[in-house]
Design a protein around this nucleic acid. Sequence first.
RNA 1: GCGCCUGUGGCGGAAUUGGCAGACGCGCUGGACUUAGGAUCCAGUGAAGCAAUUCGUGCAGGUUCGAUUCCUGUCAGGCGCACCA
Length: 945
Amino acid sequence: MDYNFRAIEQKWHEYWVKNHTYEVTEDETRQKYYVLNMFPYPSGAGLHVGHPLGYIASDIYARYKRLRGYNVLNPMGYDSYGLPAEQYAIQTGQHPEVTTYANIDRYREQLDKIGFCFDWNREIRTCDPAYYKWTQWAFQKMFNSYFCNSCQKAMPIENLISYLNDHGTDGLDVAQGEELKFTAEEWKGMSEKEQSDVLMNYRIAFLGETMVNWCPKLGTVLANDEVVDGVSVRGGFPVEQKKMRQWCLRVSAYAQRLLDGLETIEWSDSIKEAQRNWIGRSEGTEVVFQIADSDEHFTIFTTRADTMFGVTFMVLAPESELVQKVTTPEQKEEVEKYIAYVKGRTERERMIDHKVTGVFSGSYAINPFTGEKNPIWIAEYVLAGYGTGAIMAVPAHDSRDYAFAKHFGLPIVPLIEGADVSEESYDAKEGIVTNSPRKDVTPYIDFSLNGLTVKEAIAATKKYVEENKLGRVKVNYRLHDAIFSRQRYWGEPFPVYYKNGIPTMIPEECLPVQLPEVENFLPTETGEPPLGHAQVWAWDEANKKIVDKALIDEKTVFPIELYTMPGFAGSSAYYLRYMDPHNNEALVSEKADKYWQNVDLYVGGSEHATGHLIYSRFWNKFLFDYGYSCKEEPFQKLVNQGMIQGRSNFVYRIKDTNTFVSLGLKDNYDTTPIHVDVNIVSADVLDIEAFKAWRPEYNNAEFILEDGKYVCGWAVEKMSKSMYNVVNPDMIVERYGADTLRLYEMFLGPVEQSKPWDTNGIDGCHRFLRKFWSLFFDKDGNLCVSDETPSKDELKSLHKLLKKVTGDIETFSYNTSISAFMICVNELGQLKCNKRAILLPLVIAIAPFAPHIAEELHQLLGATGSVCDAEWPAYNEEYLKESSVVYTISFNGKMRYTLELPIDMSNDDIQRIVLENEQSKRWIEGKTIRKVIIVPRKIVNIVVG
RNA sequence: GCGCCUGUGGCGGAAUUGGCAGACGCGCUGGACUUAGGAUCCAGUGAAGCAAUUCGUGCAGGUUCGAUUCCUGUCAGGCGCACCA
């Protein structure tokens, strides 16, 4: 009987659905294991062979864990809010929900063909109101919370309010936007609106004014990568920097916990490092500088407190509020000109070219250590968003300050022994401090750093600053609060209304607030976001329902927020929802959360390192603080699958003709390479007829062949439609079957590594499955399995495999596992082994990799039920034991010959036998033996000289 | 500029704690069976050499009896962050 993969795969897909094979429930008698893939955004293009890579890898692991007796949760769903569906809607008028749902159906169809063990009963979609109810709920919880710094956790905002009632801000240690100071009396005297504004400074989800790229013509905020050279990529309209009211999440409050948590999870170093980098913790010192001839002062942040004696000027960020205060009347015009120039530059421009620009403010600041007056400059190289937006410049030991000083002719004072700063600054934190203080400038100061190392000097200065109240030791984080609102339609609406200008939460029992219908998906004419088109979009406070906005009366009916939430809102806690997806009372029940805990294995791309993977961790920590999630870290182990790149093919057209020349001959002509659809190329040989039919303009194309073939060129590029290098998994499944596809994707190389897709090698995997299949049949095609006792060789072959695979699966080394299967099947084929006692364990072992064929063979062997419920076959070392060992004999480390010796021979005996060996004598001849090293069961190395 | 990762045949890639480099697959070569082969099976396949042997894991050093593996430096490619004080 032939290996009819089509019939087999269809049969078992039906069986799995009918028997609910992959549905799981909490089962206290079994240990849980939670496997999760990053859920996909269902794009219109469907899946290509790169997408299932991670799903296959995790599917193998999930199936393996199940065979090992774990109760495995392996769910799948869709991240179904997003820009492409909305853009498509704007162009076609098609409602994003329609396209999204159609895409989901297509994805599902494609996924089903590959034979994953997903529990589809738990499917979630982020655009489903029953799901986003909990996204809105979490947002409201964050709105109603503040972050207590001393206890490092989120607390109900009521606690803060009662504290403010009793103490004002006195002694308050909480995460906040800016440091406010007021008394309890002042707080109580504030209007409702004023109190609301003040609380925004502390809430974890808050309305804030942030700098954004605003495009007036498009009426929307643009991300940095949507702006090039000051104009929008789409349309080429001017973009300006603008402060806008936006919802934000106070992610920065959790910076230290996000950093500390990394120590407790098993993620790759590169992802952890990327997150550490993104969080950007830096320990330093804040120092207060008085402005000369003024009562004003300002604070700078530095990590190089040791360089206090080398400060020669100060710099403020152009956006700093201090700029107004320090600019003298004489300098006013010049400063304003400069500010205008900076405003015209986008964030991106400032990032790309680091121009040395700046302007003198006219004022001076007094160095609290030396009493020196340093000029205050304003320059764009100092960023408002980091530290205090003000720095002390030490040109001798900071390359940016150095460039600035050279450009504007400011003094440079070196502070480290032997540092030559005539050409460039000396930035390294190494060396012995000198010139601190300089005797000629400040002979009177009794504080000296001279003779200390830089590290000692930093510590000494910190101590001095604290003791003399010149500032304080401070830890800064680069991590910014996340902007949480978008001027878009296709996203979660905010459950917020504006009661006389005060943002107010729609009551929890009224959630979800459903996305309203709109007549079109563009911004309104008055520049409101698309939700401005929604007619039924006002909150009736008395009747607790959404009503027509014509009824807005500012007494009981109020406008609802027009912004929607960003893409990461729905993906931040979805893993919790899978635990209990149909629960209408809670995001996840306590019981389900206690049982499933957190994700044991998370598989997905590394491109989410500083996005989703930070937001999720933040979101989960917040829920953890309130006990909604029982684990602080959501994803215990993370595996980043590599990208599958495309392998593009080219044909070479001779310029100004319709003649194409084969790769080997192309250098004889003047040609243009043209991408050709990889699906009409096989092993780099073009199917000429298919090519002619591909495009009308190639109908009458002519070809210059080599050896009767047209050979195409190739290159590795991103897999994309425009390069015609997309390989569709459906096609592979159709031609080779899902099991072959699964094996081949894993056989291609390590899961974590990026690699180009090349269909050419797939035959090897397919051949292997056919060989495996044929072990069960005689040459007439009849099932032929014997119940005889297996031979020693057969047992050895099987157990060698089991040992290898059992080890490999734990480290995701699936490619080597598959190699081991190939070797084993070859060996059994040579032995003509058809013993049930060998084949049954083999079938179970291959089930995670090739589940369809395993199910079929499992049944053919007479077993009942699904192979998924079998028990993973344990290997037995007994069968692997050898009675003798082959030693490699080497001289001075060079391998020379091998020698078979009994396994339990003593070292002395081994040495004696080896030295008496004829071959050894040849290598020893004329030399003395210095040393003999015996590595048990492996090597005897004789050092001669 | 900083951080992280990766460099092994014609190709994808193996090599468990430092111990026979190139497993396994593709491709290629030869053979068998075939009317036929983009089917199947068998053998060979890092380089040089008739051979014994020698040389080979980006490059240069080091540690070691022994290094693809550990250390230092360096080059190349990829990814991330990027005027972060």
